[in-house]
């Protein structure tokens, strides 16, 4: 190899090393979890949660979902969104015993979650289920009509047991946004929520607001795999969800 090309290669290498060094220091922590006023309105009230709190001085929540419920990509399980949700609810209702069961299993979507409803949800006799889904269905291009049907079926089964539901939409992340028809799954979830009068937590819209309006870079709230949330993302989602649930529980 000629000497000149060696120098060119060497300078490219140094330039690359410098740019990656810049990427190591992201914008420093900002504790604010932003949202638009309407985004914390879940679209349905949670009277049964209130009834349970009045009657039993307890509120039992099951967080059903995939990796972003499990907390994949967080530095520890204490930074998953259900852990933060528990903290928010317990602080807000000190006289109520709040329990949040984390029933997130990575890689799953509506089909596999329906298979474990009995074991993972009904067995705990929860008052409220936060159901996070849609991301894996979209990543695997599940038929949208089938997704719609299975989701509605799952809601009907939970309603039959007298359980209230909050649906959580997919995350705003590079891997999800790059899909061809990710909007279809979001639309299906909104439709089902309206048809069945179920609360919907718009995680996608909130995170989109962070990216587009607050101009937070992806690295601020998304992991370096381009799909999962990081500690900040999970904590904010847990906190905002807790706030939204509090507003939906009648006084």
């Amino acid at each position: 190899m000629s000497h000149r090309r060696g120098t060119a290669l060497r300078s490219t290498f140094v330039a690359l090393a410098l740019t990656s060094a810049c990427a190591v220091f992201p914008a420093m922590a900002k504790e604010r979890c932003g949202y638009l006023p309407g985004q914390l309105r879940l679209g349905a009230e949670l009277p049964k949660a209130r009834a349970a709190m009045n009657a039993r001085k307890a509120l039992e929540v099951v967080a059903l979902g995939s990796s972003s419920t499990q907390g994949y990509g967080a530095t520890s399980p204490f930074h998953s969104y259900p852990a933060e949700l528990l903290r928010v609810l317990q602080e807000s209702y000190p006289s109520i015993k709040v329990t949040v069961y984390n029933r997130g299993i990575g890689g799953q979507d509506v089909t596999q979650m329906l298979e474990r409803l009995e074991r993972d949800v009904f067995a705990e006799h929860p008052d409220l289920v936060v159901w996070q889904l849609g991301t894996n269905a979209a990543l695997r291009s599940q038929n949208v009509a089938q997704f719609h049907r299975l989701l509605a079926g799952g809601i009907a089964r939970m309603h039959a047991k007298g359980i209230e539901i909050v649906l959580m939409t997919p995350q705003y992340a590079p891997a999800f946004n790059a899909l061809e028809n990710e909007e279809d799954y979001l639309a299906a979830m909104r439709e089902v929520a309206q048809e069945t009068n179920v609360a919907l937590f718009p995680r996608y819209e909130i995170m989109k607001f962070w990216f587009e309006n607050e101009r937070l870079p992806y690295a601020r709230f998304i992991n370096r795999d381009g799909l999962h949330l990081n500690d900040f993302g999970y904590t904010c989602i847990g906190r905002l969800l807790g706030e939204a649930i509090k507003r939906a529980i009648p006084r």
């Binding site: 740019t19 810049c22 590079p174 790059a178 061809e180 990216f211 870079p217 998304i222 799909l227």
Partner: peptide
């Protein structure tokens, strides 16, 4: 860098995103 700077984030085409992520 597209994860650090939103202007670059918008420049990653969807087909590339589908190819590489997650």
């Amino acid at each position: 860098l597209s994860w650090e700077f939103n202007a670059l984030g918008h420049m990653v085409p969807d087909w590339l995103g589908r190819l590489i992520y997650p």
